[in-house]
Simulated scan of single mutants.
Amino acid sequence: MLLFFRLWIISLILTGCSFITDAPLKSSVHSEGGALAAVISNDATISVVSGISQNVTVWDLQKDQVKYHWSHQGEGNNLVVSLAIAYDNSYVVTSDREAFGLWNLASGEPEGFWRIDESNIRDVAVSDQGRGILVGRSNGKVMFFEPVSGRRLEFLGHQEKINSVDISPNGFYALSGGNDYVAYLWDTRNGQVIYKFAHPSRVSKVALDPEGRYAFTADSQKLARIWDVQTGKEISRLSYFERQKIFSSARFSKDGKYLLTGSPTRRIDLWDVQSGEQLQEWRVAPRDGPQPQSAVVYAVGFLSEFSLISESSSGLAEVWPLESNK
Rank of each mutant, 00 (worst) to 15 (best):
I52V: 07
N55H: 08
I52R: 07
V49Q: 03
N104L: 01
Q54L: 05
V49K: 08
L79P: 01
S53A: 11
E111K: 13
S31T: 11
V81L: 03
I20T: 15
A44R: 11
I40Q: 00
W70M: 05
Y68L: 03
S47T: 08
V66C: 12
D88E: 14
F19W: 15
A106W: 10
N55I: 02
N104T: 07
N78A: 01
G74S: 11
V66F: 08
G33F: 12
K67C: 07
V49Y: 02
A37T: 12
N42G: 07
D60W: 14
S53G: 06
V66S: 08
P110M: 10
V39W: 09
G76H: 01
L79H: 01
S107P: 02
K67A: 10
Q73F: 13
Y87G: 07
I20C: 15
G33K: 07
S47P: 14
I85K: 04
S53D: 12
I46A: 04
L25W: 12
V80Q: 00
S47V: 09
F100P: 00
S53C: 04
S41K: 13
L36Q: 07
L105K: 10
V92F: 06
G101P: 00
N104C: 11
I40P: 07
L79E: 02
I52F: 10
E111G: 14
E98F: 14
V49I: 11
W103M: 02
Y68V: 04
H69S: 02
Y87P: 15
V39S: 03
F100H: 01
K63W: 13
P24D: 05
N42R: 10
A35F: 09
I40W: 09
Y87L: 12
D64T: 07
G108S: 05
V49N: 03
A23Q: 12
V56A: 05
S50I: 04
I46K: 10
Q54P: 02
W70T: 07
A23G: 11
V56Q: 03
V29R: 15
P110N: 13
E111C: 15
E32F: 14
N78W: 00
V66L: 03
V93K: 00
K26Q: 14
G33I: 13
Q62K: 13
W59F: 15
N104M: 04
L102Y: 08
G51D: 01
D22S: 15
K26L: 11
A99G: 04
P110G: 11
D60F: 13
I85L: 05
K67V: 02
V29Q: 13
I52L: 06
K26G: 13
H72I: 01
G34V: 14
L61D: 12
F100V: 00
W70Q: 05
D88G: 07
A35P: 06
L102I: 08
I40H: 00
S28M: 12
F19P: 14
A106I: 06
T94H: 02
I46E: 01
G74P: 14
S71N: 06
I85F: 03
I20D: 15
R97F: 03
Y68Q: 01
K67L: 08
R97T: 01
E111L: 09
L79N: 03
H30D: 13
E98Y: 15
I40K: 03
I20F: 14
D64E: 10
